[in-house]
Write a protein that binds this DNA or RNA. Sequence first.
DNA 1: CTGTTAGCGCGTTCAT
DNA 2: ATGAACGCGCTAACAG
Lengths: 340, 340
Amino acid sequence: MNGPSLPTRSRVTISEVAEAAGVSKATVSRYIGSDRQLLAEATALRIEQAIERLDYRPNQMARGLKRGRTRLIGMIVADILNPYSVAVMRGVETACRQHGYTLVVCNTDRSTEQESQHLAALRSYNVEGLIVNTLGHHAGELLSLHSELPMVLVDRKVEALQADLVGLDNRDAVRQALDHLQQRGYRDLLLVSEPLDGTSSRQERVAAFEAGIARSPLLQGRVLQTDGAFCESLWDFLVASGAGPKALFAANGIAALSATRQLREFGYRLFEEIGLIALDDLDWYPLVGSGITALAQPTEQIGVTAFECLLDRLGGARGPARHFDFKAQLIVRGSTHPRG
Amino acid sequence: MNGPSLPTRSRVTISEVAEAAGVSKATVSRYIGSDRQLLAEATALRIEQAIERLDYRPNQMARGLKRGRTRLIGMIVADILNPYSVAVMRGVETACRQHGYTLVVCNTDRSTEQESQHLAALRSYNVEGLIVNTLGHHAGELLSLHSELPMVLVDRKVEALQADLVGLDNRDAVRQALDHLQQRGYRDLLLVSEPLDGTSSRQERVAAFEAGIARSPLLQGRVLQTDGAFCESLWDFLVASGAGPKALFAANGIAALSATRQLREFGYRLFEEIGLIALDDLDWYPLVGSGITALAQPTEQIGVTAFECLLDRLGGARGPARHFDFKAQLIVRGSTHPRG
DNA sequence: CTGTTAGCGCGTTCAT
DNA sequence: ATGAACGCGCTAACAG
């Protein structure tokens, strides 16, 4: 009367394979591992057949316990709903698989409590390395973890954590944006960012924006966060008599979504009356209004690099923390053509 | 000369805690587990302090090895770039965390080879249960796995696999779409679907669409896949002299993206000349043209239900495979207002 | 080339 | 209420 949904068979162990093949566990272990060349062809064949027949799969938990290598990589992500995070994660996962590692992803939903809970879980599963894309407001946990295993930060720094960092060259990206906007004739700019909660990449973008404005005599600029006052502040900017054609600069994909939504609610025609350039290149950018001009991040490559960086450390590489800053790529669409 | 990126400290074990507290490993083990009430208050206190001081974390691998419970749940996803998958995954992850489980997500990128590789990995890590959102064209592996652990399917069936299924009531969703389109005056419909590669939910939507068309004397309808011939076939539909106002019905978010992109390339004004309704409700739907009418899936709830279903089986529940079909929710926007 | 032994870190009988 | 001893599945050390 076993229903189909009731698992019954228990796992085949190395002992059963050894017995079936008429050898010792150690010999089977050698076959499993990388010492296969030490075996006589005849025994290797018998073991192979026994494994095949019993459908044996080595237990990674037990292997990890013995060897201290779990082949597990942890990744902790601030916001899985952000396409950027997913894209990076995809790159990490691809690289992991190619190197025989398995990725465990944890999403914190920007919650400090969940971050610490997840870190504890990852540690308890003996992940060999950690890829971190959170604020690390819970820096204590992270710091303590970093004394046990290598970590690499993605996109954002964590203060007091001297770890490798893979991310965007934010200064260059902002410069590209300002150059492009100025060249297209926009003069009055508004940087729209998610709340500055300590995320270093956001701060860097804001700082680079303000520095760029200060350097450019032609440009005026303000910064706005997508918080409670966003709606009114944006309206203020839109109706103010400015220095010239106006444009928004969304500091990431989420901000681009908020800004565009708000513009629509105000009844603006996208993007005849106001320009827009956005960091990140989401798949729907081409569909909105005349298309949203983007600064694309090489997200997959960021993910792959993060993993390779980790692998490097796992291989014993030491030395000071390294930084990998990728350049953004400008993709021009309709949203930066003034007057339609 | 240890750089900051070189992990050094090795993990604290139960033995060290036992020694520090002046008790045996078994006593500490009881403290860790659920036998805490069996301990004398004094010893419990000493253990607690030792754990605190040494920052001890039980090794889940070792626990799992001994008890046969890893507290690991595996999830295998066909396409992580599909927002639907991510949303479901988020629900699963939330539920996992609340119940002390950790989720391991694997993305197959719709590749059969990766699917089998990932299944092997998940099995080797002794995941206790599996949430499956793939075609399972590699059904052999899945079937064999299902004899070892409980599984629950999400969104799509796998033939020959008698497992619980959590997904959408596709017939009802399609009926809602057709009713809405007909009521809005559309008469000539085109269902746009990703390629029918065996994905059961796609097939169900197509079948329900064709059945619905056959039942409705007012409606005409065809089905189109987003494959190589998509562009020309769509054009044929658009220029053909039809029975009346035309509308597209995108069978999911990806199809909606393809369809909208193609309409734009044809120079259509969205959505004055043609209607559109789309399954899934992505965050950018409101921004495109006059806004895309959606049939939203309760993705988070689907994820939570999938996990709870699994938990149920892990708790020993048996019986035939169950089906959980959620209703889609119609969200009307501008894309289903004929003549702008 | 292969078998024997001894753990990895932990939970679980048995004793006491 | 607590400790000693064994084993989970596997690998590494040493024999032979």
